[in-house]
Write a protein that binds this DNA or RNA. Structure first.
Lengths: 193, 193
DNA sequence: GTCTATAACGGGATAGAC
DNA sequence: GTCTATCCCGTTATAGAC
């Protein structure tokens, strides 16, 4: 991927976080990226093309900040590893805010835009399975379908909490507490099986 | 509220569910409601005014379909009452679909539109407290803060599941199963306190 | 209260030079 | 590959008659 393309996608992620998919203006994107509108249409077919590639870009980036943790204090216990991965998405840092709000926007847009659905469903599935695998390491005796269901709940809850946080209905610290409680609840459920 | 105003708001709810907040066109709204665009601007100040009043309208309506159940088979046990209230939001009927997708749109819009935040936060709080109260009837010994946290989780999860359902990532039956599991998990957690 | 007609504008997309 | 200039359409909002 050309460096210019990357610059544009970074700018798009930033702008979507700030203004929403709805508020993304191609001209404003051009200004933010320091290029012309013409160039944007040269690299991306149209507005939808920008959106699609930005979704992809954001997914890649989220995988990167999911990886590369735990180097400072040695490997974590499964329970802590799970909690950390999930709580990573509830932090008030520019990149997480950007990724979360862009993700929320794309999820909401997908309700009315078929083009976005497949990518989103695929990315969601990967995420759910990753969480289910971690749950399996904490509770190895739990049946796989129960692990999958817990993974779906924790990730869906995370999306719901993110939206409440971003829309100002929940302070981030509180959201984190609520999520911790959910992990406890899911583990209590799996333990009882 | 004048009957014409109601007609317009019903049409707005229908259109927001079909096209999204972003896809709502005043002219299309006029056609759907069977009135002129001029009349819409006569009754509502501007586009944002339409949105605000539609949010209010949707909330009122949701309260109405939340009330008035349980008349057919006598009062339900608290556990079943709780499940039924929550599962009411995961049904593939026109009105629930409309309310859910409009709600999701408004939630997503509130991230970038301060005007919508207060109403949304208030409505969310009412909803959370209602669920917490029902949880308290099932587990009267659980401490109130734990009940509140469970209520927040169940409602936030519901929003997350609705979005996945509406964006095509989840079949409705599966979403309902996942939610039932969450109720079990929360009750298991509260029981252990 | 309700309509028709239209002003005014924003923003997506393209043409063509360099 | 990149820019400038511009077209043109869709949409909001208003004016004014009835």
């Amino acid at each position: 991927m050309a460096p210019r393309t990357t610059r544009i996608l970074e700018a798009a992620a930033r702008l979507i976080a700030r203004r929403g998919v709805r508020g993304l203006r191609v001209e404003e994107l051009a200004a933010e990226a320091g290029v012309s509108t013409g160039l944007i249409y040269y690299h991306f077919k149209d507005r939808t093309g920008i959106l699609r590639q930005t979704l992809e870009f954001i997914n890649d980036r989220a995988e990167r900040y999911t990886a590369g943790r735990t180097s400072d204090a040695g490997p974590l216990a499964p329970r802590e590893e799970l909690a950390e991965i999930l709580l990573l998405e509830l932090q008030d840092t520019p990149m997480v805010r950007e990724n979360s709000s862009a993700w929320g926007e794309l999820r909401a847009s997908a309700v009315f835009d078929e083009v976005l659905r497949d990518d989103l469903a695929r990315a969601t599935l990967v995420w759910v399975q990753e969480v289910a695998a971690l749950l399996g390491q904490v509770q190895p005796t739990a049946p796989p379908p129960a692990l999958a269901a817990s993974g779906e709940r924790l990730t869906a809850l995370l999306e719901g909490l993110s939206m409440r946080w971003l829309s100002g209905g929940l302070r981030i610290e509180h959201a984190r507490d609520v999520l911790r409680g959910a992990i406890d609840a899911e583990l209590a459920l799996l333990r009882g099986m």
